[in-house]
Design a protein around this nucleic acid. Sequence first.
DNA 1: TTGTATGCGTTATCAC
DNA 2: GTGATAACGCATACAA
Lengths: 342, 342
Amino acid sequence: MSDQFETTIHDIAKKLNISASTVSRALKNNPIISEATRKLINDTAEEMGYRPNTLAANFRTKRTNTIGVIVPLINRHFFSSVISGIEEVAYKKGFTVTISQSNDLLEKESKIAQTLFANRVDGVIISIAMETTNFDHLKLFTSKNIPIVFFDRVVDEIKSHKIVVDDFGGAYRATRHLAEMGSKRIAHIGGPLNLNIYKNRQAGYLKALSDLGLNNDESLVINNNLTREQGIDAVQKLLNLSEKPDAIFCANDTTAQSVIFHLKNNGYKVPDDIAVVGFSNEPFSEMVTPSISTVMQPGFLIGIKSADLLIEQILNKQKEIEFQTIVLPTDLIIRESSVRHK
Amino acid sequence: MSDQFETTIHDIAKKLNISASTVSRALKNNPIISEATRKLINDTAEEMGYRPNTLAANFRTKRTNTIGVIVPLINRHFFSSVISGIEEVAYKKGFTVTISQSNDLLEKESKIAQTLFANRVDGVIISIAMETTNFDHLKLFTSKNIPIVFFDRVVDEIKSHKIVVDDFGGAYRATRHLAEMGSKRIAHIGGPLNLNIYKNRQAGYLKALSDLGLNNDESLVINNNLTREQGIDAVQKLLNLSEKPDAIFCANDTTAQSVIFHLKNNGYKVPDDIAVVGFSNEPFSEMVTPSISTVMQPGFLIGIKSADLLIEQILNKQKEIEFQTIVLPTDLIIRESSVRHK
DNA sequence: TTGTATGCGTTATCAC
DNA sequence: GTGATAACGCATACAA
């Protein structure tokens, strides 16, 4: 019941009448140790039930082989996909992943950062909270030369690797697609513009409109936090316009779904009366009726790339690094909610 | 650019001409230290930019304030909800959460367990992989008196706290509900029976049938791994029967969705020809058409409870604990896929 | 190829 | 209340 005795490298050394350093080297497969002694040591270690004390090693080396991940909310498909990708890479490379959620609150994000810092994570992967506009808590890491990789919601002010998706291009193609389906008055329900992702989606939408020669009517653009309730409010506002839209490009799928729901409830046909495109390709979007056209973001791949870049940086800390911003492609997935039958 | 100098308690001690032990005590708010010196020390610490070295403390105390979580797949709504709950509690109580996914593979689960063990996590929360039938890798923890809490997919062989939901009751109510909607031949697509959750769901189904006086036709029960593809195979088998079912109770929502999809494609009306109920209340189930009747499991609450129990155990390690199995209620959510209009 | 000596920063034990 | 000292288990610079 009580914690047992633990064998250390010293115990092994004593038993074999060799030094602890040799044991230490042998166990880490240091090539300087002869094959014979290595084998002897490994066998004895196993026989004695030796288990390395990671805590001691971490303490000694000042490294933890741990990477910290901060996301707004674990329980969101996009983020859990990213985490899944991070975890996969990290696991393969012998890193442990510590995950925290900011709940989109700056204060919590800041506390988490301090905890991770105190726990000496070797690096951080983060998508910042909606609230976050001050980045002092992240400068903790950069000031100590601890690498950060941003994804999705990135911070321009901090020099680091960044992984984003082509929000602009995705939004641009979505908007053009709506036009190609015969829409003339294309509305947009967007997110908070302090976040680049939403700014870029909106920019893509606007650029498409101007390229298409459609006049940009400001009453057709509504920005909110993209919740289900706000989606309903927004679409109702659009329906109250004297000139209603004939298409709506929503900056996420949740909004698209609530928009479609509200339209159907009010006797509008989707896509025939009003076509809808969302963003993110949440799992539900292909399952609902009508299935939702949307823009796919490769969450799992983002996770893979983020972890790859971070770990590379951790392992090559001395090197001067040229920071890159990787833009992963988005894909327009055309489904029922935007394809007119007439 | 290079890692800076770090102030230690010795630096503070030297500056104040006191001993390091006093500094250590003061910084940990040990009441034995006088208010005056405590304040002096705290102020000096701040002034000198002191930050505690968690690694050293962990090493010394053999504790990490970290709890390890192992789930089959992070990127599944139920599991990410649980994780979300765990993270919330852990964060409040000053614990860090390390998350790994087994991908439902015993080998990976086992390696993860060893890593967590080597990293000296203070406790583990786990839902075991579908494959897992041997538990040696988990006995690692119990043998060293490191607490484990199981949730969802629990292990009878290991003594510990367990959090499950009332699978039996949920399945029972789902089946009765299908009967109340006029179904006479109720089929069941279940999961692997080495997992209690699926065994219990199946038992609830069977008990309901017997209570209802419906004869239990073995050809109406199919067990598989509940993937989308296997769901389609299973429902096709059921449709090939000379006496087809008029209702199907599926052990998860993914299967329910693929079953409904296949039924619609083959000209069957859901629920009128064949009613369907799923299990888990995945987010998509209320959004699809027809919306899926299902059994709700309180994922977030499971996370909260698991973390509460685990942390309590960690903090009271000396006490003999009476292990409990907490059964959280499930709720039948009735939607379109099971409500007949005639 | 192996051994010796030392230190990492903290906490625990004992003494005062 | 405070101080002196000894670990904790490992890794590494240096010596041989």
